[in-house]
Amino acid sequence: MNTTQEDIVFLPNDFDPLGDRQDINADKTFADISMTHDIIKRFCRNKGAIISLAVILIIAVMSIIGPGMNQYSYSEMKTSFASLPPKVSALSGIGAFDGTENGKDMYALKGCDTDFWFGTDPLGRDLWTRLWTGTRVSLMIALIAAVGNMFIGIIYGLVSGYIGGKVDIVMQRIIEILNGIPSLVVMTLMVMVMRPGVGAIVVALLTTGWIGTARMVRGQTMKIREEEFVQASQTLGASTFRILFKDALPNIMSQIITMAMFSIPGAIFAESFLAFVGLGIPQPQPSLGILISEGYKSLTIHPHMLVIPVLVLSVLMLSFNLLADGLRDALDPKQKDQ
């Protein structure tokens, strides 16, 4: 800018009191954008994240309405129709979903005249219904664990970082001990102690999942504690509670949300891992992990039982990762590429 003294032109009303006109500084070239608007704009520019969000929404909606789309239930067994390949009559022209396996029409062989869209498992249960019910269970476990971990992490980190001193030292040692055991081992042991079930898996995920969030919140809180706006609050007599939740937390919320987002695919994986080890949710309830470990047993004979749940799991995990990436870039552009 080479604005010299002479370029400044004063208008007659420049020195009048402002009164109610608060818009005097409105910039026409760079219109002011609210933070939310800015975040949404940055997020929408990321095509991968948008597609991922759409995919996740589709899978979530299917997990709600999918089980009701045909007449079967997830536990109803029809042993005479066991291990049927996928068949959708309307699609029979395309070479897949035509009910054949190794060139033989299994539906004709077993005398079945209805369609199982994703086939049946060795007990004759409809895999379409089981898949979407299982997806619902897996998503629920992951979401509850992510939210729970976020809460525990925030509280633990805020207390440890803000109070500091001896409290902080003790709390950090506890984290170190918990963190010294590989998380898969902790989860295995926790589920063993509590007997397999949805609740046990969620608690197992909550045992160590919060540590990352707690560490991050603690570090940020310690940094923010020294900032001038917090000191100003303290001088004005704000309570510790108010400083923590009104001053400190909003400043780290974007990082916390990103972290929680990244933990969802981890939780989905952990559930499937436990199922594979034999500590999944009990029969006949399905989950993605249960379906994969059941399908794995007949991988070479009936690959459809494994391929479909593995695909759904992979697409879900990939989408959540890309979505979290996009969220991080949108919420905190400074962190990009780190």
């Binding site: 499937s272 594979f276 799991l313 992979s314 995990m317 990939l318 959540f320 990762n321 890309l322």
Partner: peptide, 8 residues
């Protein structure tokens, strides 16, 4: 590689 578990 980062998103998918090794067993996939």
């Amino acid at each position: 590689g980062v998103s998918l578990p090794g067993y996939v």
